[in-house]
Design a protein around this nucleic acid. Structure first.
Lengths: 344, 344
DNA sequence: TTTAGCACTCCGGTTGTTCGAGTGCTAAAT
DNA sequence: ATTTAGCACTCGAACAACCGGAGTGCTAAA
């Protein structure tokens, strides 16, 4: 178990390193306000902390740098609460000030705020509205062989898709089909659509539509969900300012990963809800080995529907980012609640 | 005027520099297949070419590097036609092989191909379908105070927008309004919508709708175009491989610009149609001072509706990229023509 | 007019040196 | 038993000196 003094020193070293990005030495620590030991004492403790794996040296006579274990201990036990500056507060409030009509707007805006308030990259996923119910479905023919299908959910989300019209489907059949779909499916949650389709609708179509086989296929094509939630980024170029990303190869692998939305989605998708902090190698992808990622889910109707996160160097301003993420994720939840209040 | 020999040497130097990214010396040029002069002769010519501003030295005893004037002369007078490799051809053909139902798909795919076939960044704008006509307009109420408005064009493009419902607007009024809008506006080209709105529609609404003032405002809100065309990128990380972008500050200003879609749009929007080649400082934005941009418009119904372009280092493979851009822009035009054939 | 030859220039890499920041250890001080 | 002062030591960063090579410009011969 670490002594109080050791904790104090560990904390001071990590704070110092987060500020300066340079190995920190015993002398500078001893000058710290809250610390009243001589450099020699501190050196002894540092040697112990290194032995225990919390600190590392870059070379034999250098100052100390936190190891991943060090950061981990820091975030688990040593976090000081962060107090937002006036500026930060007003910036965060701006999330509410706009007239927001749609979830995507709010989400995009959150990403921007998050990146503006940190000098890191923000990533926002979702929201994936599980509970969204189909409000209306429309098929608008364009030419004899093509049409657009439009699904609208009760959350105001619109999904559209170009579809090809089967030759054998008459326009009256099409109309009938759309009617059936609307009648039977409106109010049905999206995730049940395909299932419902397979059961009830099939029967109905058989009864009422001449060319029901074609129609069925078409309807299935129409409803096939394409709704991979979007990934929004903010401040993608911020990392280029961080000294740890002077090396272009690190930047490259990172940016290449950012471009792969499906992978990013996989890495950040809401699993265990709540706050998650992954430091360096704790991340599942090698491109993040020099990064820390702090993320939190945000929920709607008690269900995690999206994630907001920050990617920065391991030497991240943890207290600030954590507070910020928690704050914004709550704000987002409030906005969603307001937006899609089930007034009933 | 430059002598033939000077042109030959200029060409060889530029080709060499494009390949190697290193200053090229008289010796390597003299070994070139097509050149049969001794290094000394070539040195003399190089000195002249430098005097004339086509070449530069990086230091007093270095080989030569093309100046922007040199590149300019090269692209204007010395381009060799490029022959695509088998691989490249099949890759380009893949643009047609997919079943494409919507313009955006084709455009996105073009961006990908373009970047895969070069090791540069591709940028595709548009298409902005000027001639697109309104096919259908729908307003779907979600709650008592909000709705989604959906516009569909005859090109299959769907535009949707969350709007707030004015309190004084009854649902029957809403329905009437939508009917009027559809009746009067369908078939009208998008760019005429606002104008038509101001004249005919206003009158009609006054006649038929109780709370016409509210309704009008709402209708205007609904139709207000939000359609800044998208900007698609391909291979954004490609540039990081180029030796000229080892320096992270160059990368940074470039990537920051990429993020500003409106600015990129401004810089690339179709003005004079046809092919455009901008080398280094010829570009309007300082972030591009080390880049060349080759772009071409693509047209629909005789009107330039979008741009495809490649951003690379000044030391770009001009012949290949130019052929490629021309090729793909034609392909895109064909696809659009096929897609939105005015069958009438 | 071309080219061989040669002196010269400058860059990049290597080596040596110095300087300073930082350490570990020992012995004195508390 | 802790803490601290003192000191020898280590290492990297910064700088100078040096060398080799690639390339040039110029002159004089072909």
């Amino acid at each position: 178990m670490l002594s109080n003094r050791q904790l104090l020193i560990l904390q001071a070293i990590i704070n110092g390193y987060i500020k300066s990005a340079e190995p920190v030495g015993s002398r500078s620590i001893s000058q710290e306000k809250s610390i009243s030991y001589s450099p020699a004492t501190i050196r002894n403790e540092m040697a112990d902390l290194e032995e225990l794996g919390f600190l590392e040296k870059t070379h034999s006579s250098s100052g100390r740098v936190p190891s991943e274990k060090g950061y981990r201990h820091y975030v688990d036990h040593l976090l000081l609460p962060h107090h937002f500056s006036k500026n930060e507060v007003t910036n965060m409030k701006s999330l509410f000030e706009q007239k927001i009509l749609e979830a995507d707007q709010a989400v995009k805006h959150s990403a921007t705020i998050l990146s503006e308030l940190t000098s890191y990259v923000s990533i926002v996923l979702g929201p994936k509205m599980f509970d969204a119910k189909l409000k209306s479905i429309q098929v608008i023919p364009l030419r004899e062989d093509a049409a657009v299908a439009i699904l609208v959910t009760d959350t105001g989300h619109v999904e559209n898709k170009a579809v090809s019209l089967p030759a054998g489907l008459s326009s009256s059949d099409l109309e009938k089909m759309v009617n059936i779909l609307n009648e039977k499916l409106s109010g049905v949650p999206l995730y049940l659509l395909e299932q419902k389709m397979a059961t009830e609708i099939t029967v109905l179509m058989k009864q009422h539509i001449d060319n029901y086989a074609e129609a069925l296929l078409f309807a299935e094509d129409t409803l096939k969900k394409s709704s991979n939630e979007k990934v929004y980024y903010g401040g993608k170029t911020n990392l280029l300012n961080q000294p740890e990303f002077k090396d272009i190869t690190k930047v490259k692998s990172l940016y290449e990963l950012f471009e792969k939305e499906d992978m990013m989605h996989e890495l950040l998708k809401p699993n265990k809800s709540g706050l998650s902090i992954r430091i360096g190698q704790e991340n599942e992808n090698a491109a993040f080995e020099h990064c820390s990622i702090i993320s939190a889910t945000y929920s709607f109707n008690g269900r995690a529907v999206g994630t907001i996160g920050i990617v920065g160097p391991k030497r991240m301003e943890y207290p600030k980012v954590i507070s910020l993420i928690q704050h914004i994720s709550h704000d987002l939840e409030d906005i969603l609640k307001n937006l899609y209040r089930t007034d009933a």
